[in-house]
Design a binder for these strands. Structure first.
Length: 482
RNA sequence: GGGGCUGUGGUCUAGCCUGGUAUGAUUUGAGGUUUGGGACUUCACGACCCCGGUUCAAAUCCGGGCAGCCCCA
């Protein structure tokens, strides 16, 4: 018997913040010791998860007609300044390079609209060029003035930004809807992160957009975290970059632009927080860098076990299952704890006993059950178990998410619900600019952020605005926020 | 943006109040015994965040900086 140790100093339910810091370190997701505020080193385990998420997202984008490009990380000041609300929105957070080009300042991209549109001005000439749908995998830089939190709010983050151009507003709006569908299909269905698509109030849209739809998820401490957002870019922006095309009737027109920005580092924060438990990470089968770890029990004449382990490894790899054999000299118990911390969905235990019976023990990370599986059709079984595993994580996350959304009728119940870490929904006067005053009240007095109105369903308001008492026109959602 | 806490081998930690030889564990490397839920053992390597001040003497006291964490906006 070894010494009794607890995996974590603090449990997830007791103190989420500390649990989060600890799991990032113990599961070797990031290293915080780089020493520059808001910048973290993403370690191999974290990088591999992010890479898997990137690949899934990119393949979804290609399936919907997007092409990849790679744009410079540097944006000249004159491009950056072309659209005034965009400048106003981002300028305070821009990292300017010390090295100039002539007299011109150079910015490290906080986002790449002003890089893409510079080229769209050249690339888009005719309606035949449309739609133009291009994305890039990129890191972007924003000098956050608020408190930074690893992966949740950093000064550098890793995302995909897709910049699409269409001949008509109708097409562009359809793209915005498609973006929401993609968030649903990828982030929710595959990564298991539930969210609400929220149309942002006018005062909270992307700088330079006509409107913005964000995907709001929630962390276990009850704080709302914005996940991918999609924007219908204003015509003002297009004109600033003089992007235009000739239509079928030889008439000059301005295209309609959209952009979509799923942030892998931030989604990873949600994945860790939503699924993880007091034994470490719990990674969805689909995005776990190692899907199956094999822990062999070798005895003196273990040649047969060795051969069987090699065969299993080959079989699983042949079926495109990411498998790793733990041949380190550590004792089995230590290996078990290690791979549980890393969030590997399945562990296969195999030794002499298993050779005789023809069945291996499969340990399942989320439920911590052990089951017996026949060696003959192991790959098949793992695939089935993997699918079940992911749908189990999804269902659990959904249940928890649903329970966190509360209908409120008055300020007192809103306050109470927020204190319990819930998202509140209530009747509200307006999400146009005339509602800004009530939103300010929500921020100041109720200490919550107005998320907006549902973008996926229509919710009819009735009665009065809970804040000002005037006629209500919308149902809004609000929550504590990062 | 405001407030609080903290910074000691790779990691965790004692020492700090009351200035004087830096504690323990773990990790890492080498060796031996081990291996079905965090093994044991021997040896070795390894640290006071940075800059300044006070002092015969600073991990310790003072000032500033940087970084991390927590709470609030």
């Amino acid at each position: 018997m070894g010494k009794k140790k607890t995996t974590f100093n603090i449990s997830k339910s007791e103190n989420f913040s500390e649990w989060y810091s600890e799991i990032l370190n113990k599961a070797e997701i990031v290293d915080l010791r780089y020493g520059v505020k808001g910048f973290v080193v993403i370690r191999p385990w974290g990088a591999r998860i992010i890479d898997k998420m990137y690949k899934i997202y990119e393949s979804a984008l290609r399936c919907t007609g997007h092409e990849a490009a790679i744009f410079p990380a540097v944006i000249p000041e004159k491009n950056f300044k072309r659209e005034s609300s965009h400048v106003d929105g981002f300028a305070p957070e821009v990292f300017w390079l010390d090295k100039k080009q002539g007299d011109e300042k150079l910015a490290l991209r906080p986002t790449s609209e002003t890089a893409f549109y510079e080229m769209y001005n050249l690339w888009i000439r005719s309606y035949r060029d449309l739609p133009m749908k291009i994305y890039q995998r990129a890191n972007v830089f924003r000098n956050e003035t608020k408190a930074t939190r690893p992966l949740i709010r950093s000064r550098e983050f890793h995302w995909i930004e897709s910049h699409d151009a269409f001949a008509t507003k109708k097409d562009a709006e359809a793209q915005v809807q498609d973006d929401i569908v993609m968030t649903e299909e990828v982030m929710h269905k595959i990564f298991g992160v539930p969210f609400l698509p929220m149309k942002r109030p006018q005062w909270d849209k992307f700088p330079g957009a006509e409107y913005t739809i964000g995907s709001d998820s929630i962390l276990p401490d009850g704080k709302v975290i914005q996940q991918p957002s999609t924007h219908l870019i204003s015509q003002h922006f297009v004109k600033a970059f003089d992007v235009k095309f000739v239509d079928e009737r030889e008439k000059e027109k301005t295209p309609w632009l959209t952009c979509y920005g799923p942030c892998m580092s931030r989604i990873l924060a949600s994945v860790i927080s939503v699924h993880g438990d007091d034994n470490g990470l719990v990674l969805p089968y689909t995005i776990s860098p190692v899907q199956v770890v094999v822990v062999p029990f070798y005895s003196e004449e273990s040649k047969k076990v060795r051969e069987m382990v090699e065969k299993i490894q080959k079989d699983l790899l042949g079926e495109h299952i990411d498998v790793r054999v733990d041949n380190s000299g550590k004792r089995p118990g230590e290996k078990f704890f290690h791979w549980e911390m890393k969030g590997v969905p399945f562990r296969i235990e195999i030794g002499e006993k298993e050779l005789e019976s023809g069945e291996v023990i499969v340990f399942i990370r989320d439920t911590r059950e052990k089951i017996s599986v026949r060696i003959d059709d192991l790959a098949e079984s793992i695939k089935n178990l993997g699918a079940e595993y992911d749908s189990r994580l999804l269902a659990r996350a959904d249940d928890s998410f649903k329970s966190k959304i509360v209908d409120c009728k008055d300020k007192v119940s809103i306050k109470k619900a927020l204190k319990l870490g819930k998202i509140v929904k209530f009747s509200f006067c307006s999400v146009e600019n005339d509602g800004a005053k009530c939103a300010e009240f929500v921020e100041k007095e109720l200490e919550a952020r107005v998320m907006g109105i549902r973008a996926d369903i229509e919710e009819k308001a009735s009665g009065k605005c809970v804040i000002c008492g005037e006629k209500s026109n919308v149902i809004i959602y609000a929550g504590k926020s990062y």
